[in-house]
Design a protein around this nucleic acid. Structure first.
Lengths: 208, 208
DNA sequence: CCTTCTCGATACGCTCGTGTATTCGATACA
DNA sequence: TGTATCGAATACACGAGCGTATCGAGAAGG
């Protein structure tokens, strides 16, 4: 009865504006590059003027961070879902299948690859961003580790090294192969992924 | 007796200027980002004015390309040298040693990692640059393949897949691990490299 | 309805960078 | 030493983008 309006009064329009700005920014970031992107370009792409932008974000960097948080949360959620699928009753897939599933679903997306690479560069030269990115990567790695452990157990194999170590390797591998795939068009992309993943898993598991 | 001066008359000063501009541009590119770099910033860093720049390059993109050609030629040369060392009479190193040597020598350089990533992004969004980059990567892969084949033979092992395929995998792996190492500071960087390389080589060679 | 307040649009002054045209000191060679 | 040529510096006109201050349409709430 006391505080029916804890937040600001008008919210719907504002949320819409934010969302549109974020969407548009992703577009522009991807095909112009973060460093070459101006506030104006983002606004034009979103169909707003700069007034709207500065009313919602204080800088392009802030928007970039928001974008990253949004997207990496989505990726993590997809991972959790995959994990749940493995833990569930009707689990049939092998580890390679699951990883492959994830690869096709998210990691093969060219736009996200570009964005992620941009963010990596941003982190490499911005100490503040570096912390944030490292934390999220660590969390991702941890979940991938869980996924691998779960899948291995289900496949009746025992890991000979820590899940975290394996996850770290698998991520490095997938990220490298993915970039390579887009830089050297041809029939080799998926093969590299599979070649390496197979090697990794064969090598570091034994049938329990 | 006929044409003693085929090129332009004055060369020393000009060459020096070009070199300084390239050096300075690398600095600025690395810590501002290619997209956020202006001609003026490069000139200031090099100790020249824009007049000097436009007299030597027609655009930042042209300079970027030159820089890339320079650097990737150097990397390739180092590779050839490593190959020669393996072919030579006093060869003692194993494959892992050689690869490790290369990793430490060139690939661990943070500045070059950043630059290479910038160039990858540039290639991803510039069709013209993409061709150039793809060609150089192909050449690099081919030489790494030769290196691997040579080293395997010397170690008395036979490859069970094509050198090219293995080289492709090895490069993807190393590039991924390297980026990861700088994004997630800790003790894990080199370990990931080694873990993956070992797995790869164990898996795809048999003692001949 | 009618009031209130939110939030995106507009207006403004300013800085930074661009690319070209021209100048003038430096340099190589006879 | 003289001189023709080269090449970096300077001058100039211009556009793009920034961040702030202010306004006014329109949504929310009574």
């Amino acid at each position: 009865m006391s505080a029916p309006h804890p937040g600001p009064r008008v919210t719907r329009r504002r949320a819409e504006t934010r969302a549109r700005l974020l969407l548009a920014a992703l577009d522009v970031f991807v095909d112009r590059g973060v460093g070459a992107t101006s506030v104006e370009q983002v606004c034009e792409a979103a169909g707003y003027t700069r007034g709207a932008f500065y009313s919602n974000f204080s800088s392009l960097d802030e928007l970039l961070l928001t974008l990253y948080e949004q997207r990496s949360a989505a990726v993590l959620a997809a991972l959790e879902e995959a994990l749940a699928r493995l833990t569930g009753p009707a689990a049939v897939g092998t580890l390679t299948d699951v990883v492959d599933d994830l690869l096709t679903a998210h990691l093969a997306d060219r736009r996200w690859l570009v964005m992620q690479t941009e963010i990596a560069l941003h982190a490499l030269r911005t100490p503040a961003a570096a912390g944030e990115v490292a934390a999220r990567r660590a969390r991702l790695r941890e979940r991938v580790g869980a996924l691998i452990a779960q899948a291995a157990q289900r496949a009746g194999r025992r890991l000979t090294t820590s899940p975290d170590e394996l996850a770290s390797a698998a991520l490095a591998l997938v990220e490298g192969a993915r970039l390579q795939a887009w830089l050297e068009p041809g029939d080799g992309p998926v093969r590299t992924d599979r070649l390496l993943l197979t090697a990794l898993l064969e090598q570091y598991t034994v049938s329990a």
